[in-house]
Structure formats: structure tokens, C-alpha cells
């Protein structure tokens, strides 16, 4: 039947094409990852709803926290904005990592991952590609938080270089944290479950930190939790880099936490992905 003229479709039975390759080269694996990063970014580009949600969420946080708590916590809105904005960067990015798990969970449910798994491609590329694509999402979230904050009156009191370092640090942390979200996405059946389970963990982590108020104002038992919370270190580091204060110790601690999260959750997520049946 000439209607189906696929050049290169193997001919009649027996006339096999080239022998299949025995294994995948690392270069191919990297290429696969970039292709799937492209996929993730392409979806971002065409999905206005997602872009809107990524931009509006930090704006909402900023407006709410600044104007609701500003007077009570710091006496005036401007002082509080200088205090809270570095923390808002952290909250926005941490919550947007939930999107990683939700997208993966959706890929599982719709069978897109089955397609990937049936292809001769790197086994880790679908995960790595998704994470790399999400870094762009986190960057949008950071940029919007910072720019909108500046519009409200936030001023960087250090140097542009330190501010850039602050943005990079929060992105690095998000890249590590999103593996936890990825693991969650691979373990639960529905994207909605990722959202509520993630929130159950993320709310205490974000609010049980020094993001909104000074640790010294909290009851003793809670101070203990806050002082061990990685987001406290990250927020402290962001404050140091954006408005001034101690930098070295909180930055190192944040990076160590990021490394720890990555070392624990990335292999678990990859394993869960490989086992998925």
C-alpha cells in the first residue's frame, strides 16, 4: 500500500535494519536530558495559566505579609519589607518546588512516562530534564518577588554582586529541595495528593522559621524547631546577602543542607522512577 510510504520503515520480514546499539553513551544521556528540559520549557511558554500562577503567587505573598504583619511586627511597613522580602524569596521558591512533583505525577497518570520508558533513552533523563526545566520556573518566581518587592520600596543594601549570589543560592537550594517533591510525585497517584501532602510538610517548614518574625519572639520549644530548620539558615543567608548581616555561616549551612537534601532525595527519586511499574 503506497499510501503509507515511510522511507526507512523496515522492509519485509527478515530484512532487519541496522543492529541495535548495546548501550547508551553518556553524551546521548545528556542530550536526552536537554531535550526533556526543552519540553518542560516549551510547556511553560505555552501555558499562560502557569506563568500567571508563578508570577501572582509571590506578589500575593508580598502584599499580604507586608501589609498584614508589617505594622504589628516592625512598627511600619517599610522596615518590615526590608526584613521579610528575603524570606518571601525563600517561601515562594520552596512552594513552587511542589510543581515539580505535581508535573511528574501527572506524567505518570497520563502515560507520558510510559512512553519515555519504552524509548531507548537515558533512564534518568525524564527526571533530570523535568528538574532543569523547573529551575527556570524558580527563577521566574525569584525575579518576580525581588522586582515587585523593589516596586513596593525594598532596597538592596549590599551590592549587586551579593544580590545575584543571593538569587543563585536560593535557586541552588530549590534544585535540591525539588527532588523531595519529585519523590513525592513518583510515590503518590494523583497530582492533587502531591499538593496537599507537600503543603503539610512545607507549611510548618516555611512558617516555623525566621521568615516572618524574629526567632527570639517565639516560645522556647518552637525556637528549638526554628533553629534547626534549614529554611531558617537559608533566610538568614538571604538577609545577609540582600540587606546585610552575617553571611558566611548561614550560606555554608544552607549549601550543606542543599547537598544533604540532594544526596538523600535524588537517588530515592531515581530509584522510585526506575521501579515504577
Amino acid at each position: 500500500m503506497t499510501a503509507l510510504d515511510f522511507p526507512g520503515v523496515p522492509g519485509p520480514a527478515g530484512s532487519a535494519g541496522p543492529a541495535p546499539a548495546r548501550r547508551l553513551s553518556p553524551v546521548t544521556g545528556l542530550r536526552n536530558t536537554f531535550t526533556l528540559t526543552w519540553r518542560s520549557l516549551l510547556k511553560l511558554k505555552t501555558n499562560y495559566e502557569e506563568i500567571l500562577s508563578l508570577s501572582l503567587t509571590p506578589i500575593m505573598y508580598l502584599l499580604l505579609f507586608t501589609y498584614v504583619f508589617g505594622g504589628a511586627v516592625s512598627g511600619n511597613v517599610h522596615n518590615y519589607l526590608q526584613y521579610v522580602l528575603p524570606g518571601i524569596l525563600v517561601i515562594s521558591v520552596v512552594f513552587s518546588t511542589l510543581g515539580t512533583g505535581m508535573a511528574l505525577s501527572q506524567d505518570m497518570a497520563t502515560g507520558v512516562f510510559d512512553r519515555f520508558r519504552s524509548l531507548p533513552i537515558s533512564r534518568t533523563a525524564p527526571l533530570a530534564g523535568a528538574v532543569l526545566g523547573d529551575v527556570a520556573r524558580y527563577a521566574i518566581s525569584v525575579a518576580i518577588s525581588l522586582l515587585f518587592g523593589m516596586l513596593l520600596g525594598f532596597r538592596i543594601q549590599t551590592s549587586p554582586l551579593a544580590a545575584v549570589a543571593g538569587c543563585l543560592l536560593v535557586l541552588v537550594f530549590a534544585m535540591a529541595m525539588c527532588w523531595f517533591s519529585a519523590l513525592l510525585g513518583l510515590l503518590v497517584k494523583q497530582a492533587r495528593s502531591v499538593q496537599w501532602m507537600g503543603s503539610l510538610i512545607y507549611f510548618p517548614l516555611t512558617f516555623g522559621s525566621n521568615v516572618l518574625v524574629k526567632t527570639s519572639t517565639l516560645p522556647g520549644w518552637m525556637q528549638a524547631f526554628v533553629k534547626g530548620n534549614p529554611l531558617t539558615f537559608l533566610t538568614e543567608a538571604e538577609r545577609g546577602l540582600l540587606v546585610g548581616g552575617p553571611v558566611a555561616t548561614p550560606v555554608i549551612r544552607s549549601l550543606l543542607w542543599a547537598l544533604g537534601l540532594f544526596v538523600v532525595f535524588a537517588p530515592l527519586a531515581v530509584r522510585a522512577y526506575r521501579r515504577k511499574t
Binding site: A21, R22, R39, N47
Partner: peptide
């Protein structure tokens, strides 16, 4: 890996990327 180079799969639930 070789098998994956030889086969194509079309599932009962179409696995195309909606986005």
C-alpha cells in the same frame, strides 16, 4: 536497551503530552 530500539508502543490510554 536493544528491545526499546526495536519496538513502538501505543497504549490504551493515549500517552501524548497534552501540553
Amino acid at each position: 536497551h536493544q528491545v526499546r530500539q526495536l519496538v513502538g508502543l501505543t497504549g490504551q490510554y493515549a500517552s501524548v503530552d497534552d501540553g
